[in-house]
Design a protein around this nucleic acid. Structure first.
Lengths: 337, 337
DNA sequence: CTGTTAGCGCCTTCAG
DNA sequence: CTGAAGGCGCTAACAG
């Protein structure tokens, strides 16, 4: 094992003390230009690298941020993490990634593990139904920020889009196209706020336009192409077939479209479809699926910025900043009559 | 600031010494069941959390792995990181993510920064043309493992697919379909081994089947849909139009297909197309693009496993294990006549 | 079985 | 301007 060179090693070589070396390395004023230059040069020569761990232990600041997402290999979460990394990297922070796999137990383990690692903050898109684990983070005085899938908690910042508005504008768009029998495919549990809110937006848009809300038009399922097909099959068992579908997931919307095509149902004439997330594939010419943009990269950047501001202003006081970004309706062929 | 509770705090409460507490917490045999139980209970009561930083400083092992990729929000790299995380998490490691943005300077900064953070290993898919920065990692005795975009270096393990074979089998497939005028869209610099190798595989397949290699059939571009369109436009300026396209990127392939369709050229009858990577969208019914699967999740898992084995066997000796995974030809409508 | 001591690498008073 | 000393939280000898 090659010993790593420390400030003591370079102190010994120069017949000075480690404190002097430390001062030279840190641009401390209490040092002569001559020795400073000397130290810097030999440090370079000896291939010295500072040990952040020692610094972290001493300062209580690791410069690491823990980020927990359901899964990293999706465009949406990948983009958020990209935004976070882009924004935080210049400030010297590193991102530690954890996946919850949509499992509350794993999420709790991740949190525990990140706390032990002394991360300076935890950013999370939660899959949890409970929130004791978050109280624990706060008790340790570790800044906690929710993004996308949040829990509403005092003293905790969050960055989300207005999912209610997203659900509302998607549904209203379908109504504007002349649709009256609008089904909703929910890609997740209503205990998770985003799915709850999108559904509420859907409902409100119906009500505001004098359309009855029908429970049998709401399908609870998961964000998979295959599930979209099944959902359509289920909807078309009904006596009154829907003339539009608002899906809270683009993948689900794609599956729905495939099933509709397989049944020779014309899109958007007979059934208009709109998804949610603006996944890159929805913009492919061959697909052209209407959707709601959530601006994931920007959401990640914003999350990071909320944290940086929080650090800059008041280290100790919990800030409770709820950033709500406006989603954007993107109309494409699948719904534009 | 709420002080974090340390073993000293709980030692004080119990009127024992920190060492005793440490032993209790670490299942050391030299301790009575009684005191052990007592310590564990009060630790729980006091909301104690171990400080990994202190442990890391002491042991010289941070339990963090640095992973550098060009960009995280792509299916391919996202999937690899997912594989790495899935495999390493159970062993108590955390993944620190860095993006190089395909920029050698940023990559060097990332490496420097990860070294300072005392990561236990660096996994990288490199965008660099030089390799001094990698020598530096090795000099620090930090295990280095390349995945996908590797450099061939002694004492360094790598996990890749056989890109030559991938290029070869894609091209041979097109030949088998009766194509003779096969163009190649290269999505990256040939100084990056994967693109070099795919091109070599392409070339060799042509040679082996008595087809002349033509430089004007090789387009150097980048992995973007729009570039695929431009490339097709360029190819169709030639006197002898190609009757097939092998693209080293699925996105490029998609762009090419879109441009061919726009020109009313029949796929695959007039021009057969095959991409590379098996991006999820290539499997959509509407697209159905032939491609080469690189098994990114498995590649990530394998990378992690190579590291874990290396740790298990010999901490100090550099292992030089080159894992080459077999790519898989996936035939879909874009090339099957 | 438990306490004492030293040290991981660095920074920060406090003296000189 | 520089040196000496202590401590961040924890573990690992070495004593007792």
């Amino acid at each position: 094992m090659i010993k790593k060179v420390t400030i003591y090693d370079i102190a010994k070589v120069l017949n000075v003390t480690a404190a002097t070396v430390s001062r030279a390395l840190n641009n401390n004023k209490n040092i002569s230009e001559a020795t400073k230059k000397l130290v810097l040069e030999t440090a370079e020569k000896m291939n010295y690298e500072p040990n952040k761990l020692a610094l972290a232990l001493k300062s209580g600041k690791s410069n690491n941020i823990g980020v927990i997402v359901p899964r990293i290999n999706t465009n949406f979460f990948g983009s958020i993490i990209r935004g976070i990394e882009d924004e935080l990297n210049p400030s010297g922070y590193h991102i530690i990634i954890c996946q919850s796999h949509n499992d509350e137990t794993k999420e709790i383990n991740n949190i525990e593990s990140l706390i032990n690692s002394q991360v300076d903050a935890i950013f999370i898109s939660t899959s949890s139904k409970h929130s004791e684990q978050f109280e624990k983070i706060l008790k340790k005085n570790i800044p906690l920020i929710f993004f996308d899938r949040k829990k509403t908690m005092d003293g905790v910042s969050s960055v989300t889009i207005d999912d209610f508005a997203g659900g509302y504008m998607a549904t209203k768009h379908l109504i504007d196209q002349g649709c009256r029998k609008i089904a909703h495919l929910a890609s997740g549990d209503f205990k998770i706020e985003i799915f709850h809110d999108r559904h509420e937006g859907y409902k409100q848009a119906l009500i505001d336009h004098g359309i009855d809300y029908r429970e049998d038009y709401v399908i609870h399922t998961t964000s998979k192409i295959a599930e979209g097909k099944i959902a359509v099959a289920q909807l078309f068992e009904l006596d009154e077939k829907p003339d539009a579908i608002f899906s809270s997931s683009d993948f689900l919307a794609l599956g729905a479209i495939q099933e509709l095509k397989a049944r020779n149902i014309k899109i958007p004439e007979e059934v208009a479809v709109i998804g949610f997330a603006n996944e890159p594939f929805t913009n492919f010419e061959e697909l052209s699926i209407s959707t709601i943009d959530q601006f994931p990269v920007e959401m990640g950047q914003m999350t990071a910025r909320v944290f940086l501001e929080q650090m800059a202003t008041s280290q100790n006081i919990k800030i409770d900043k709820k950033v709500v970004m406006e989603p954007k309706l993107i109309i494409r062929k699948s719904s534009k009559k």
